[in-house]
Design a protein around this nucleic acid. Structure first.
Lengths: 338, 338
DNA sequence: AGGGGTTGAGAGAGCGCTCTCTTGACAGTG
DNA sequence: CACTGTCAAGAGAGCGCTCTCTCAACCCCT
């Protein structure tokens, strides 16, 4: 009978719903949580009351009472955040958010400060979070792997070394081999590669994929130059490749951004793509289509990765056992550079 | 004296700290929350106990007891999330996360499904969240503005129409005028512009800025073509501009991506940048440096925007009054295209 | 010395839920 | 018809905190 004319309407609680429906709090709780053992007639009355007062469960109370956190944290190491303006990150987040949106977990994000890592650790270990996802570029980064011992964690990309218990990744090696085979199938025989940094798993694996496809075809795998995944480094690597004097008619580049760099050099030397040199990239990011001719590349299903990461994490939290390693399938996107 | 040999160590609570320090729970709470009226001697003892048991406050309990949510939500409308692989988004998030990391608020993210908007509404209005941030591309989007009546909200970018109470943005108009003046100062007199969509505030404002600088210089403002902020649309607009037959020696483009498109057309016509036509872009994104010659552009401080949004939101939550509109200063980055 | 004021710490009542335990209703059994 | 078994709903004790109130101790002033 309280009217509360004092401005801010009181937030509806379980109690109010219970009162309105003429049942106990426990019953309302059962209805809200879909416990089957509730008489359908009563449940209907409760649901109606919920609608009537516009009830939304209080997450804090729920989490407190159930002794179960209802949020999941996405950790971005600070060093990664510096190269943050990266579509990769945005897409992973998107995938994660999409998946979690269907669950009862809430997604929160922290940038893990390198200056005070204990802060993040305390947050994660303080029982406030059901599990964590790590998106790191600097994959050598072991700082987080050992937390797997305490809370469920899933990593984006194969971490260097052991450490991580669960991660999802694309099969970089197989995809790179596939890309190289496409070049081979086009009749190219002088196939070079611009590889990524060899201290990062994608850099390593993509190079290995190229090598294995070359070996398969009985070709030499010596035309390798390295970049650091930036456009400028791709251009430089291309210059070195061309500078060696050896003929090149095919090129596999470990990411699209470096491929765009290679394009500029190729074109400034008057080499036509794909007539003179065919090129295949990796990632299928915005560079692939903004370049001319549009780049044939390996589609990296980043959103799917994010979804899968979230899915695995939730499984882990809920005690289902899952595969430690999940490989997302890639596909070749054929455009005009090959 | 409980030993709890049962595996999972019991999470330390306020109570345990209090017992160890020989004080009441209330006192520990005061120490944790930096309430000044605690004897320094006692406070020290408490802090020591906190360290000893490795105590971290339980956020759910805290939020429940204080009747104050401790998280802030970043809303990304689903339509926006589709163009999510956008450095803009990542940078805003970065800024927001950096700022919030220094506060007691936790950042959570939702992708607002267009199919069931009530879900997001319920989440926001259910008292689970202290405030919200909206990052939307489709700025006409009124779906969220009216929630400002119920919880603190801050928007990224000037929304179309009234609606939003608080937003932070760059002064697009002034910045565009400044960019145009740079062209003018360089002695260019036939200055064209490639404008953005006229149903988006940045598109409108940047065009207006160009117009006002032109007017200021007593020049005609008729060489305008429109794009939709994509590279391809920039190229098309450039083609139309050139196709008109009117001489062009300066060009202001409403974003860097379209400028990159314009570059390709300019260069394919054999026009030299900047000798034949000087160009200035807007945003200072990765296109600005990946293009040749490097693009002179307006630096859009996106991370700062994110930080500022978070700052304003926190102020709002805590009842401090703030300016409704915050303009972040921009600067011109002089490179080689002018 | 006694009254008022200040200051620092404890007591204890919740915050809105969940979940175990208990109760009550009813059906099935010998 | 008493007895057990089953199932649905209620009672009530917390979850880990915050915060108002109360109280004790001490200071200053007249």
């Amino acid at each position: 009978m309280k009217q509360d004319t004092s401005g801010s309407r009181p937030t509806p609680t379980l109690e109010m719903v219970a009162a309105l429906a003429g049942v106990s709090r426990a019953t309302v709780s059962r209805v809200v949580n879909d416990v089957p053992s509730v008489d359908e007639h009563i449940a209907a009355k409760v649901r109606q009351a919920i609608l009537a007062v516009n009830y939304t469960p209080n997450r804090a109370a729920r989490s407190l009472a159930s002794r179960r956190p209802n949020s999941v944290t996405l950790i971005v190491p600070e060093s990664t955040s510096k190269v943050f303006a990266d579509p990769f990150f945005a897409s992973v987040v998107q995938g994660v958010a999409l998946y979690l949106g269907e669950t009862d977990y809430t997604l929160n994000m922290v940038i893990a400060s390198e200056a005070k890592p204990e802060k993040t650790r305390a947050f994660l270990l303080g029982g406030n979070v059901a599990g964590a996802l790590v998106v790191s570029h600097h994959v050598g980064d072991r700082s987080w792997t050992h937390l797997s011992d305490y809370i469920p964690m899933v990593f984006a990309g194969r971490p260097l070394g052991e450490g991580a218990r669960y991660y999802v990744d694309v099969d970089n090696e197989a995809a790179a081999a596939g890309a190289t085979r496409l070049l081979l199938k086009g009749g190219r025989t002088n196939i070079a590669t611009i590889a990524g940094p060899q201290d990062m798993p994608p850099g390593i694996d993509r190079l290995n994929g190229w090598r294995s496809a070359m070996a398969e075809a009985g070709l030499e795998d010596s035309m390798v130059e390295y970049g650091d995944f930036t456009l400028a480094s791709g251009a430089k690597a291309m210059r070195r490749l061309l500078g060696s004097g050896r003929p090149v008619d095919g090129l596999f580049v470990a990411n699209d951004q470096m491929a765009a760099g290679a394009y500029t050099v190729l074109q400034e030397r008057g080499l036509r793509i794909p007539q003179d040199v065919a090129v295949v990239g990796f990632d299928d990011d915005s560079f692939a289509t903004s370049v001319n001719p549009p780049l044939t590349t390996v589609h990296h299903p980043i959103i799917e990765m994010g979804k899968k990461m979230a899915e695995i994490l939730v499984d882990l939290i809920e005690g289902k056992d899952t595969e430690r390693v999940t490989q997302i399938p890639t596909s070749l996107v054929i455009r005009e550079s090959v």
